[in-house]
């Protein structure tokens, strides 16, 4: 049996204090057997365009990378893995002041590759800010 990863415990523990996710303020919302939902509250330090106050695209990508990574662990158990590639479509600019919600889903796992997709939104998944597709690789293989 694969070792279970508890995203709530991670984000309430060391994940909230150290590293890039903590630096940009990523928090935990919910998870299921093959998905994870994180959030990214608006913050002045995330702004990419000072004129409009719109946040940079980088923090959105970071949140979606983390949500997708945890989604893989939820489906296949915790194992060392790395993002192989990630594509983000920026459907519309994020609204200044509003929290972003990012939901990542793992829809397929093979021996060593996990396929993910996800959406970032401001509370309504049908009005998305960004759409994501990507793959992760586990050097030691996934437990399916």
């Amino acid at each position: 049996m694969a070792f279970a990863f508890d995203p709530a415990r991670f984000f309430n523990g060391e994940g909230a204090r150290f590293g890039h996710g903590a630096a940009i303020g990523i928090g935990y919302r919910a998870h299921g057997p093959d998905w994870c939902e994180l959030d990214l509250p608006y913050a002045a330090q995330l702004v990419g365009d000072p004129e409009s106050g719109v946040i940079a695209s980088g923090p959105i990508l970071t949140m979606m990378d983390m949500a997708a990574s945890i989604a893989v662990w939820n489906r296949a158990g915790f194992t060392a893995h790395a993002t192989l590639d990630l594509r983000v479509d920026y459907l519309r600019p994020a609204t200044p002041g509003e929290t972003l919600v990012g939901r990542g889903e793992c829809y397929r796992v093979t021996h060593s590759v996990a396929f993910v997709r996800g959406v970032a939104h401001h509370g309504d998944p049908d009005d998305p800010i960004a759409h994501v597709a990507g793959t992760f690789m586990a050097p030691g293989g996934y437990h399916r």
């Binding site: 150290f18 890039h20 940009i24 940079a56 980088g58 923090p59 990378d65 993002t83």
Partner: peptide
């Protein structure tokens, strides 16, 4: 440095992506 770290000792892929986009 800490603001760009993912797992200990390695850069976060999101920070690398942020650098690339910039």
């Amino acid at each position: 440095g800490d603001p760009v770290v993912g797992r200990p000792g390695f850069l976060h892929g999101g920070a690398i992506s942020g650098l690339l986009e910039m």
